[in-house]
């Protein structure tokens, strides 16, 4: 048995709505699959132990840590990253609010922040500031001090709720 046979996994999954087939090392993490194998560098590695949230992406609709998710688990999975969410306009209102409120500085945490915020906003309703802060507490930002991020998420939640009513 060759090393390749033992240590490599054939994988088929969907990333940003596109079918992907590839062979990866058995120990490949999702964040490395995205960045190294697919060139999707919008998701970032920050701490590589699941604390900072910079690698947050959607897997089958749920936000997950790209650095803790093993790629071989993802056969048949539906993965969305900031690139695909942007192309499909799925976070356009959040992105516009982040820019308008300057809810990003260096931008390194931002793709993960947007994915985390999307999960909260898509759940509907108008979360309180405390609820927004609690929900976003898995995503580390060293630059902003968080208030602008909370403001931006709050604005989008309110706008969507008003849009749903009208």
């Amino acid at each position: 048995m060759t090393d390749a046979f033992r240590n490599r996994i054939d994988l088929e999954l969907t990333v940003n709505g596109e079918a992907v087939e590839l062979t990866v090392p058995a120990g490949r993490h999702l964040i490395d699959l995205l960045r190294l194998d697919l060139g999707l560098t919008g998701s970032h590695a920050g701490c590589e132990h699941g604390v900072c949230g910079a690698c947050t992406v959607l897997v089958d609709g749920a936000p997950v840590r790209g650095c803790l998710t093993l790629a071989p688990q993802l056969g048949g999975a539906d993965v969305w990253t900031i690139e695909g969410l942007t192309d499909r306009g799925l976070v356009a209102d959040l992105q516009a609010a982040f820019v308008a409120r300057n809810a990003l500085q260096c931008g390194y945490c931002t793709p993960g922040m947007l994915v985390a915020a999307k999960a909260l906003i898509d759940a509907g309703g108008t979360p309180s500031r405390a609820e927004i802060r609690e929900h976003m507490s898995g995503n580390y930002c060293r630059c902003t001090g968080y208030e602008a991020i909370v403001d931006a998420v709050e604005t989008v939640a309110r706008d969507r709720a008003e849009g749903a009513m009208s």
Partner: peptide, 19 residues
């Protein structure tokens, strides 16, 4: 005035060295 580079960064199109 909005930051000219913010639109790129929220779209995941930043180009950090590890990219």
């Amino acid at each position: 005035v909005p930051r000219p580079n913010a639109g790129r960064l929220v779209a995941g199109k930043g180009r950090y060295v590890d990219d």
